[in-house]
Every structure is written in structure tokens, then in C-alpha cells.
Design a protein around this nucleic acid. Structure first.
Lengths: 204, 204
DNA sequence: GACCACGTTATACGATCGTATAACAAGGGT
DNA sequence: ACCCTTGTTATACGATCGTATAACGTGGTC
């Protein structure tokens, strides 16, 4: 075995980047193949590492999926925060931005549908995913409650309004992702506005 | 090998029942194990038949899943029709019944969540499932459009109202199924009523 | 340069997968 | 009773699965 012909591939150590590339490959793999098509080998091939490395960084493929869920949730959260920051100081503009951000990229992205479907399907069977789900949904709703209050929704209505608006956004986002032929993102935004109007006091 | 000790298990031919029991076992298997845990052997064991029989009745496990989707869709459709029939002759009562049926059994059933998640996750990768999805969703929406029109929604609003109400129902049903601690089925019904009210003309 | 920790590649193992196929039993017709 | 069709059981096959593990290459320290 000469130096010009190595017995196995050479490599550069990059543990942080390696772990992250596994997470990102997992998210991409969920998007392309769904949870049924996800496997250790396909994830590691996509990440450009050998199959044994997954078990080095995670307890198993399930633990990688949970880490991916957390990562995707952070990305969505960051996109929402950015949308609100861009909307300026008006409470109603911030509320509108928060609600409609789900109908545009990066949240309205085809790869996110399969990712979320996979996570939802694990909520009933994986306690860690169920915990994460509870946290992520509650965080969205707590922020939405604050924005609704700032915009003038009656205190007695806040809780149900937040739940109801979350539900409509989820339903519109889901249908938009499943079949983009039925209605447009702009129409989704108009429907969301109409639902917000049903909870807000009439403007002066 | 004596007659008292058969070489293999005895059986009774029942092709129609056998095919149906595979479909029902598939639906139940999706509910318990999700799409990732579904296999030919587990389905056939649950159905009480040997593994080779799946390929006798269906082109493969994918074709069985598609047949199961059709079957489940018919069951939901029948439940909706029954709810509307029970509501009597008042257009608004019928609309209310159609919309809120999703928050009660048999539609609000834990086993249906995983079934629908599995189907949704196949929409992007299986053309037959995508076709079925389009049909089932359109059928729901066409019926809802009729009920909205009967109840007095303005003609110009019908299309968007049907999409919007469908989205809210889906979102509430999804969250109710994922985590029944956040709000109740009765609250879901109240939210749906408020959303209907946002599209209906004021009652005299 | 020598040594060592550990990140990484490569591969093996037992288990399970979907599909294919041989054999046989049930049930109907003559 | 015999024959034939077909529904069914039982099992084999090649492929892929997640996990485990040996070996080695990298990079830091002395």
C-alpha cells in the first residue's frame, strides 16, 4: 500500500460541522423521502460521512430526528422573529407579519411539509418529540398572544384567539403545501386578515 | 402426516372479506405504528393471513395503502353525511353539523391522526395518493360550498369561505389530535362558529 | 520525532424488509 | 368419485435495515 494509494479515504476533522451536516441531511432527507424513506445510510451519504458516524454523534436515528426537529423549530422561530422585526412598530403590522410569514418562504417551503409531517407522526410514539412539540407550539402561541394583546384583542378573548389563529394558519399552510393549485399565498393572507378582524375590536 | 395433524393450517375461502381485512389491518397498523412502522408482515399478521396474500390482492404494499386511503375517506364522508342528515332541515344547522363533525368521534379519533399523516406524507411521492387527496379534499369543499350557499354566504365569497373554513377545521382537528390538553372539542366548535359568522350575513 | 486521544472510515452482524414461488386445500362442476 | 380452478399457507430469496466494532488517520502536546 503506497502513499499514493491510501487504504481508505483521507479526512479532515470537523466535529461541530459534521454533527450539523448530519442534522441538515436528516432534514433534507425527510423532505425528499418522507419518514418511510429515511435511513442511516441515506442520511450519512447525503452528509458525506460514513454510516458509523451517526451513532457516534447521536444515540440512534431517532435521536437524530429529535435533534433535527429542534433545529427546524429554531429556524422557523427565527424567520418569524425577522418578519416581525421588519414590520416596524405598529402592533397591527407586527401581528399581520407574524401571521402571514407562514405563507411565504422560508416557512412555506416544500421541504418543510414532510419534515413537520414526520415530526407529527412521532408525537404519539416518542416522548422527546412530544415534549419538543409542546414547547414549539406553546412558544408560537405565547408570542401570538402578546401580539394579539398589543393589537387590542380583548383580554378575555386572547387565549382562544391565539389558538384559533394558530389553527387557521396551520390549516392554510398545510393545504398550501399539499396542493398549491387550490389557492394562492396572497389569498391565504387575506383569509388570515379576515380571521384576525373577527377577533380585533373595530378600528377607529 | 395423519388427518388429525394437518401439514398446514386449514382455512376457509373468503376473498371479499380477506381483501377487506387487509385494508382494515392497514388502517389500524398506520394508526398504531405510523408509516415508518408499517410492514407486509405486521399488516398480514393483524389481518390473520399469511404474508404472501398481500401480493395476491394488491400490486404491493403501496397499492394497499392507496386502497386504505380510499376506504378511510369513504368512512369520513359517511360520518359527515350522517351528521348533516341528523341536523334536520335548517341550512345553518346543517352547516354547523358538517363543520363540527370533525371535532367528535368517529372523525376525531386518535387512530385517524396517524392515518392522515401517513397519507399526507405520501402525497408528494405517490401520484395515486396525490390524486385521491385531490378528490377527497375537493369533495369536502364542494359539499361545504353548497351548505355555505344554502346558509346565505354571498356568492362572491363562497370559494374563499369554503377554503378558509376547511383550513380552520383541519388546523383545529390536527391540534386536538396532537395534544388534547390545549383546548376542548366544545371550544373548537365555538371557534368554528365564530369563523362561520365572519362569512355569513348578519341574521335577522 | 514520538505519543496519544479521538474523530473517522470501512465493514460485519443479526434482523427485517418486500416480493416471488411452490405446494396444497377448498369448493364447484361434471 | 374425479378433475380443475383458485384462494391460501408456508417459505425462500436478495436487498436493506440499525447497530456494533476494528482499524486507522488527524492533529495536538511534549
Amino acid at each position: 500500500m503506497t502513499a499514493a494509494s491510501p487504504a481508505r479515504a483521507s479526512f479532515v476533522r470537523a466535529p461541530d460541522a459534521r454533527r450539523q451536516s448530519l442534522i441538515e441531511a436528516c432534514a433534507a432527507g425527510l423532505a425528499v423521502r418522507g419518514v418511510a424513506g429515511l435511513s442511516v445510510r441515506s442520511i450519512c451519504a447525503d452528509a458525506g460521512v460514513s454510516p458509523g458516524l451517526l451513532r457516534h454523534y447521536f444515540a440512534g436515528i431517532d435521536a437524530l430526528v429529535a435533534a433535527t426537529y429542534g433545529h427546524v423549530g429554531e429556524q422557523v422561530s427565527a424567520a418569524l422573529a425577522a418578519a416581525v422585526a421588519e414590520a416596524g412598530a405598529s402592533p397591527r403590522a407586527r401581528l399581520h407579519a407574524y401571521v402571514t410569514a407562514s405563507f411565504r418562504p422560508p416557512i412555506a417551503a416544500p421541504e418543510l411539509l414532510a419534515t413537520w409531517l414526520a415530526f407529527w407522526s412521532l408525537v404519539k410514539t416518542d416522548p422527546e418529540i412530544a415534549r419538543l412539540h409542546g414547547e414549539i407550539y406553546a412558544a408560537y402561541r405565547v408570542e401570538l398572544e402578546q401580539l394579539l394583546a398589543d393589537a387590542g384583542v380583548a383580554a378575555a378573548d386572547i387565549r382562544l384567539a391565539a389558538i384559533a389563529v394558530t389553527a387557521l394558519v396551520d390549516g392554510l399552510w398545510l393545504e398550501l403545501s399539499l396542493d398549491a393549485q387550490v389557492f394562492t399565498a396572497a389569498e391565504a393572507g387575506a383569509m388570515a386578515e379576515r380571521w384576525l378582524a373577527a377577533w380585533l375590536p373595530p378600528s377607529a
